[in-house]
Nucleic acid binder design. Structure first.
Lengths: 223, 223
DNA sequence: GATCTGTATACTGTATACAGTCATTGATTG
DNA sequence: CAATCAATGACTGTATACAGTATACAGATC
């Protein structure tokens, strides 16, 4: 008898708040000038301060929010140096994923990767958000193929931080669309079966992304 | 007049609890059979349940604790597959650090690394704990030399999880002491200035650690 | 007019109270 | 005697109340 266990997970309001806040941050509804105050959020969500507070503290631990001296939480603003560090960390995670995938060289995985790349790169209504999401989905697909909880968690952690301050907001569409075409070559590199080749391909690709990022930041005048 | 500014960091009891619990876990005072119950902990610490609860939730988010179905939190027990995943993640982080250090090939950093390795490998009173701490300190030193917040955070995260269930408890001293001598070779690899060489050295070293771990687990009968 | 000081305000951190849930146990009933 | 069901206890999650602290602002002092 294989009945499915009824999903009776302990409902926690704090988790709901956490997800809603994260979505709002990633969606850009919460901007750099917004101050998140426990009482106000609680009132808006029509719940008590306790779960709101828990969610805020967890987002702080994630490095997404910081305590504002004036009270309330604010999006953490990364310095240029930290952005560089973030991309180094990305390279660590994703290039290791590439090594593992190249070592496996599993045809079914490779074809699934190609399918994902093809599907995601085919954007119907172009927008910065659309390009960003496609890029993220493609890169995440590589990670999910690895079947490694920890690498995947770290990937998400990095990308959540990176988007928290809307790093990509300044990138022009044309640049993104150009960069978006490079992903099939990453699958090629994995298909070579050579760990070193696959790794280098990813490192270079992420380096390109970093350069693009820096150029975009330099172009946008708002500090 | 040079009065010292009173250290006015926002005191949060929850942080204190978090640290104490983490220390207790790493120190082995909290074992796999201990059930951490909010009320009990609060009573023991003579504070209210609120900060205790916050600390527990954060440890859960860190992947160190899990909600026991009988109530309370329990150390998360990793499967053998997850231990493999954890070592893969370790390899990702630390080998990337090695690449960066090799690329810099900074003589002062290299000599500081040698100093750390020499100091830590010289254990006066051998014990499993002593070997473990030395090993951790050595590996952590490589990470701190990189000056990358995110890589360092991920390193700590991995090691905290790994030790949460006292993975190393079963390893015999003799094995550890043998493994401990290999670290100077890692500095050699970095000093080659070749990113690939340094990376491979770390990957191999971590692979050895994993094999040792597996052997130790196989030896210890308790599932 | 500038600086200092007291007071109000805003917001946080902690404690406590309340209600609900899950498991266990003991009683009841066929 | 076995099975079912109610009651109890253990814990959790959420709300609320209280107290402390930092910031802003207004009035006082020279």
């Amino acid at each position: 008898m294989a009945l499915k266990s009824i999903k009776t997970e302990r409902r926690r309001l704090a988790d709901e708040v956490y997800n809603q806040l994260m979505d709002a941050i990633l969606g850009g509804e919460i901007g750099p000038d917004d101050r998140l105050v426990q009482e106000r959020l609680a009132a808006e969500l029509e719940i008590s301060r306790t779960p709101v507070r828990e969610a805020l503290l967890r987002l702080e631990q994630d490095g997404v929010l910081v305590n504002s001296p004036r009270g309330g939480f604010v999006l953490y603003r990364m310095s240029e140096g930290e952005i560089r560090e973030l991309y180094q960390a990305r390279a660590a995670i994703e290039s290791q994923a590439a090594r593992i995938l190249a070592g496996q060289n599993d045809p079914s995985k490779n074809s699934e990767l190609r399918a994902t790349v093809g599907r995601e790169e085919d954007i119907s209504t172009p927008s910065i958000r659309a390009y960003f999401d496609a890029n993220r989905n493609i890169h995440r697909q590589f990670l999910t193929m690895v079947n490694n909880r920890f690498l995947l968690e770290m990937f998400d952690n990095i990308w959540n931080r990176g988007t928290a301050f809307r790093l990509f907001a300044a990138i022009e569409k044309v640049d993104l669309s150009k960069s978006l075409g490079d992903h099939m070559a990453l699958v090629d590199a994995i298909e070579s079966g050579n760990a070193g080749v696959a790794q280098e391909a990813f490192i270079d690709h992420i380096q390109d992304g970093f350069d693009l990022q820096m150029a975009a930041l330099a172009h946008s005048d708002n500090a």
